[in-house]
């Protein structure tokens, strides 16, 4: 007995295809965030988005030295100011243990031992004395003094302070840290900036 050959339907299913295309289109429309062009930027140049300051930090990375972290309190609301945290490679000065602490623990200890403060947005326009009296600036000042006193008694090339800051942070606070470290002369020969860059 001869088998009956069943012809497969070879029609292109256009409505199904359109459904998929529309779903993809809606997805991209919803997830797309346009980047506004900068003033003076060439219209011919591809306007790539700026690198964001919030990097994915390796939470388990062991800190090698003091890290001053300056990040917006709320990225969506810049008027809330900047969160300044002083992260130490140990729990606290009087509780040093063998081995450096991880970034996530250092963040926790900064909170516990009140090595955190908020820098108001108007810090850029303040006079020198008002700026120096800001609690966050005092915190950096005092913590640097103490850290250098305890850890950098001898001038070494390896003595350094790390700064991790959002790319939008104004130069004033960074310049204050540079000048402060410069005042220790050879005790702090260099600073390390951890900054976001686009991969090339």
């Amino acid at each position: 007995m001869a088998f009956r050959r069943i012809e497969a339907r070879k029609d292109f299913e256009l409505p199904t295809f359109i459904d998929i295309i529309f779903l993809l289109l809606i997805f991209f429309l919803l997830t797309y965030s346009p980047v506004p062009p900068k003033v003076g930027q060439s219209t011919l140049e591809l306007n790539l988005p700026e690198a964001a300051g919030t990097a994915k930090v390796n939470q388990n990375e062991k800190l090698e030295t003091m890290m001053i972290e300056i990040m917006p309190v709320n990225k969506e609301k810049p008027e809330m100011g900047l969160q300044v945290s002083v992260l130490l490679p140990f729990e606290n000065y009087d509780m040093e243990k063998a081995g450096a602490v991880a970034y996530k623990d250092a963040k926790k200890f900064a909170k516990t031992y009140q090595r955190e403060d908020v820098l108001p947005t108007e810090y850029v326009t303040l006079g020198k004395s008002e700026f120096m009296n800001l609690p966050a600036v005092k915190l950096i000042n005092d913590q640097l003094d103490r850290y250098v006193q305890e850890k950098f008694r001898i001038a070494k090339l390896t003595n350094r302070i790390e700064i991790r800051a959002d790319r939008s942070v104004s130069f004033r606070i960074i310049n204050f840290i540079i000048e402060k470290c410069s005042s220790y002369e050879d005790l702090i020969p260099s600073l390390v900036f951890r900054t976001m860059f686009r991969q090339e």
């Binding site: 990097a55 790390e162 390390v192 900054t195 976001m196 860059f197 686009r198 991969q199």
Partner: peptide, 9 residues
């Protein structure tokens, strides 16, 4: 994007 370390004297 990547976070890089930049040394500044």
């Amino acid at each position: 994007n990547e976070e890089r370390r930049i040394f500044i004297p």
